[in-house]
Structure formats: structure tokens, C-alpha cells
Design a protein around this nucleic acid. Structure first.
Lengths: 329, 329
DNA sequence: ATGAAAGCGCTAACAT
DNA sequence: ATGTTAGCGCTTTCAT
């Protein structure tokens, strides 16, 4: 564990510590010659910049935190890449904290980000109550994504439009018994389900919402119950692609095939949904763009902490694939 | 941006700063009564522990770094969860740095970990040359995973055995023209390809290795070339599941189906490979267990920095699914 | 362009 | 059990 400090570099190069600090951060004020001298000296004695000390000493840390809800959800990489692009462009560091599928680590993950003193954090897919997020945001600004929190910068795709697109699509195909698999009761992510129910009623149909946890296996279980019912649905609209994959699991376990036996529609248009053999009809919520926008919003918040919070709503679109078709006759 | 320090808490609670520090870290030596007093005071004025200052002040940071090569590869969550279990059990913080599919950010990601002064890092799927890793490990110890670096703690599954299992399986099914899709030429991950070639020759067959980058689309491209050749293979063994999915893409684009037209075998046994509709035969390299072992090794390295490096080799197994079958007649 | 010195918020002896 | 104090490695005025 080499313990080489700027002090050592300064001694080696025959300059002051301040110069070394400047040289390493390209903060003008240091002549090219001495800069080279310093860089060489540092190289020679194996100096490495200590980011923690730097963050501590400067009030600003030039660091953006990103919350990742669930490594298994393949929509995450899309959001992440959007975020990375924007933070790279703004020359901000990006640090990441990972939670888990059911949200039990959500608070810990956000605390982690704040514990390392990020200047602002980007929080997609978090299930914490709005009040808690508002409170946390008083310590450190926060841009939420995939949902809207009044009083905070939010970027999301329109859930009402998304659900309407799905119901419309299925109704047009001739479906009348369309069930929806929603997140746990009482979660913050109820907008898609609400919009689904509204769209169903508008079409003169009876909504049928079942709830389950965020894991694929849980969706498979409730989908199984739906399929085993006396009058099963002819289509299932799942809250996201992970849940839709669970539906496919339940179907496979029963020897059923989409779309002949049941139409399935997901949400997120993950890379997985595009695989041949899966070919899942799904709502695209522009995850990549959402990530970019969220990060750009975060950077703006950084520059102007007191700006009035903005809400960016993206327009979702339906990607129709082979998993949806006319209902069985 | 509230700036509440231990100093403030100490004043509010009417005790010394040291007590506050102790109270927050459960370092005995503080009476339950005062501890409660302090916690209450902290709560009241909205104090939050500054991890960076803590890490700076203590020589040890109680932090383990984890390198993540590519968020899109669904084997990563398995490894990650194993790591998380072990680090939680050892009460160590876990910080994460993400690289990208082609390894261009690998060095930056590791620098990031070292920049925040992790005590040790866990590095799976890194493509940097061994010499570079050895050099970096002199600054901060490192446990590599999914490959072996002489002189460093390594945990991996036996690539020779894994490739042999695949070739054996396919040969037994009757295949003779078995192609292998390997990582870029000159990469550190050549052992599976080498072992494939050996196994092929042992079986009296001609190895056929094609190389491509780490992205699914690149694998799809080279798989397309194989399929379009005058004498196409009857089976393709892909270096990992991501590449195997690329093969499936190429097949779908040509209207071919596995296993009737072509058998496909992947490597990693990712959750994706288990999806109905994908059902990819794949080598399980015990990713979850590998993560756990790597983290446990990291913790051990922490306790004893001078221990002689260990190499843990896991036994892979072949998960046979629907994508492999007898060759077309 | 360069240097001196005062912290950043915390931990860790050491003292009481 | 509690308080005192010297740093951790760096940034950042303020001088020079």
C-alpha cells in the first residue's frame, strides 16, 4: 500500500505542494515546464491522486451519484449509458450505488451516495415514498427518473400514454379479457396500472389487476394463477419486461404459446424483449434518452441549486412484436 | 446542502467530538445513555456521517471495490450477488465501478476504485494485461475473477474442462463441424478457445475459431459469415452467452432454427439462457459462488496482505437445453 | 508563476 | 466513560 502524497511529489520535484495540486488538476497558473517536472516526479515515485482527500478538501466534489435499482433488469444498462454519456460530456465523475429488486436496499444505496458526498444524485426506479425522497433531497439534490416526485426534478415517460397504447393495441386485435400484472399494492409505481384500468373502462371492458413483487418468479406465479382460472384472460399486460418474462415462464410451464394461446405485452423494450424466441411486444419508454436527460438535468441542478424543479415527460411508443396477436377463437 | 458536522452534534449533545465519532461507529467505550443522547442530537440537527472524511482519517477504509465489466452481460448480477453476500457478511462497504463491453474503460474503472482508496478490489472480466494488473495490485491488492493472473489471488472456473464438456456434448450428438466464436485475437481470454481447439483435435476434428468483439452484434456478424459459408458448421460454440445470443440473431435473420438447422452452445448459464424461447445449452461456471469466493478471498487478503496468493478453480458443468441436438442430416 | 498556511470532517492515540 | 489533540491528503485563499 504505497503511501505517496503530494508532499512527496513536491519534495521530489523541488516545488510546493500547491503547485503539485494545481498541476494535477490543470488549474492554469502553472508553467508548462514545472508542470512537466511535477508530472515526471510523480511518475517516478508512483504518486496517485487521492480522490477522497480531494473531495473532502474542496466543497464541490464534481461527482454525480447514480442509483441502480436492480442489476437484473436489462433496462438499466440503457438508462446507465445515457447517464454516462451526459456525465462524461460534463466532465463529472459518476459513482454508483446498487440496490436490489425488492427495494429493501434502496435507502442504504442512497445513503451510500450521500455518504460519499456526491453533489447531486440520479435516482431511477426507486420505490421509497416521495416524502422520504424530498427529505433526502434537502441534504443533497436529487433527480428522480421513471417516476414523478412533486418538488423534485423528474424525468419519466408518460405512463398514461404507455398503458393506453397497450390497451388500444390489444383491443384492436380483438381482446376483451386483458389482465394487468402490477407492482405490489401501495407501491409508488401505480400509474401504469391506474392508466390501464382507465383505458379498459373507456373501452367498455372490465379491468383485472393482479399485484406481485418485482421478481420474475413472482410474476410467473401470479400469471400462473391467471392462466389456471376458470375464465383465463386472452392477453396479459405486464408492468415491465421482467414481469412479462415471468408470464412467458408460466406459459411455458403449461405448454402454452404466445400469441396463439395468450398475448403478452411488456414495458421497457429491453434488449431481452428483442431477442428472437422472445419477441415481446413492449412499450419503449426511451430509457437511453431518459438517462441522458436525467443526467443533463442533474448537471443543471448542480450549476443552479435553486432553480425551480423541472418535470420532463417523454413520449412512449409501442414496439409490436410476435408475442401479441388476435385472441384464440 | 446542510453542513452539519460531528462538532455540531457534540455541541448540541453537550459532549466531545470523539464521543460522537465513537457513538456512530459502535466502538464500545460509550455508555448507552450518552449514545442515545448523541443519536438524538444528531437526528435533531440533521447530521449525516461523512464517509469520505472517515475514510481519510482512518488508515483502513473498510471498503471493498468491485469492478463491473459490462452491465449488459447478465452473468454479472450473479457474480455481484455473490460478492454482496460475502461483503455484507464481513461488514465491509462495497463500492462499484463500471467499465464497458469492449474494455476501453477498464483502466479508468480500476483507477476509480483506487482513487477512492478501497482496501482491496475484486476484478472479474477485466481485459487488461496481466502485467498491468500486477502493477496496479502493488498499489492496492486485487482479487481477479474469471481469469488467472500469476501472482494475484484468482478465482475462476476451469476453462479447459468447460470447453471439453461442450465439445464432448456436441461430438456425442454427432457433430463434426463445430465452430467456436472467440474473443478478439490477442485478448487475455483465450483459454476457452485453446481448450476447444485441443478438444477438437483430440476428437480427430478440425477446430475452426473465429474472433470478434464482446458485443452481441459483433457475434451476430461473424456467426452470419459462418452460416453463409459454402460448408457451414452444424454447431457453434460461443465464448459466452452474449455471443451465443448473437448467433441466435444471425440464425433468425436467415430463418434458421436451433437445434434443427444448427446447434448453439453458450457459456455462463445466464438467466437469459434459461428463458423459454431461448433455452440455450450453456456451461455453468458457478458465477454466484465465484462472486462469493472472490469476496471471501478479498476479505482474507485484507486481514493478511502478505499471504501467498491463492488460485481457486471451480468445476464447470454443462446445462443442456433445447438449443443443442443432433446435426441436420 | 509560485509558496505558505489554514482548514475540510473525521479518527485515533493518549490523557483524564 | 469521556475529553484533547494531532493528523489523514488534499484544496484554496492570500501572499509573494
Amino acid at each position: 500500500m504505497a503511501r505517496v502524497t503530494q508532499e512527496d511529489v513536491a519534495r521530489e520535484a523541488g516545488v510546493s505542494r500547491a503547485l503539485v495540486s494545481f498541476a494535477f488538476r490543470d488549474v492554469g497558473r502553472v508553467s508548462p515546464a514545472t508542470k512537466q517536472l511535477i508530472l515526471d516526479a510523480a511518475q517516478r515515485i508512483g504518486y496517485r491522486h487521492n480522490r477522497m482527500a480531494a473531495r473532502l478538501a474542496s466543497r464541490r466534489t464534481n461527482t454525480i451519484g447514480m442509483f441502480i435499482p436492480d442489476l437484473r433488469n436489462t433496462v438499466i444498462p440503457d438508462i446507465y449509458e445515457g447517464v454516462r454519456e451526459a456525465t462524461d460530456a460534463a466532465a463529472e465523475q459518476l459513482v454508483i450505488a446498487v440496490s436490489d429488486a425488492d427495494g429493501k436496499r434502496d435507502r442504504a444505496a442512497i445513503d451510500e451516495l450521500m455518504g460519499v458526498q456526491v453533489d447531486v444524485s440520479i435516482v431511477p426506479g426507486c420505490v421509497l415514498p416521495s416524502e422520504e425522497l424530498l427529505e433526502l433531497a434537502q441534504v443533497c439534490p436529487m433527480v428522480v427518473a421513471t417516476r414523478e416526485v412533486a418538488g423534485l426534478d423528474s424525468v419519466l415517460s408518460d405512463p398514461v400514454r404507455g398503458s393506453a397504447l397497450v390497451v388500444e393495441h390489444l383491443v384492436q386485435l380483438g381482446h376483451r379479457r386483458i389482465a394487468h400484472i402490477a407492482p405490489p399494492v401501495g407501491t409508488v409505481f401505480h400509474h401504469r396500472a391506474d392508466a390501464y384500468a382507465d383505458a379498459m373502462r373507456s373501452a367498455g371492458l372490465e379491468p383485472k389487476v393482479v399485484h406481485c413483487g418485482f421478481r420474475q418468479s413472482e410474476a410467473a406465479a401470479v400469471a400462473g394463477d391467471l392462466l389456471d382460472a376458470a375464465v383465463p384472460p386472452t392477453a396479459i399486460f405486464a408492468n415491465n419486461d421482467v414481469a412479462a418474462l415471468g408470464v412467458l415462464d408460466a406459459m411455458a410451464a403449461r405448454g402454452l404459446r404466445a400469441p396463439d394461446d395468450l398475448s403478452v405485452v411488456g414495458y421497457d423494450n429491453t434488449p431481452t424483449s428483442a431477442l428472437p424466441g422472445i419477441s415481446l411486444t413492449s412499450v419503449d419508454q426511451q430509457a437511453h434518452r431518459m438517462g441522458r436527460l436525467a443526467a443533463e438535468t442533474a448537471v443543471r441542478r448542480l450549476r443552479d441549486p435553486d432553480a425551480v424543479p423541472v418535470v420532463r415527460i417523454l413520449d412512449p411508443s409501442l414496439i409490436v412484436r410476435a408475442s401479441s396477436g388476435p385472441p384464440p377463437t
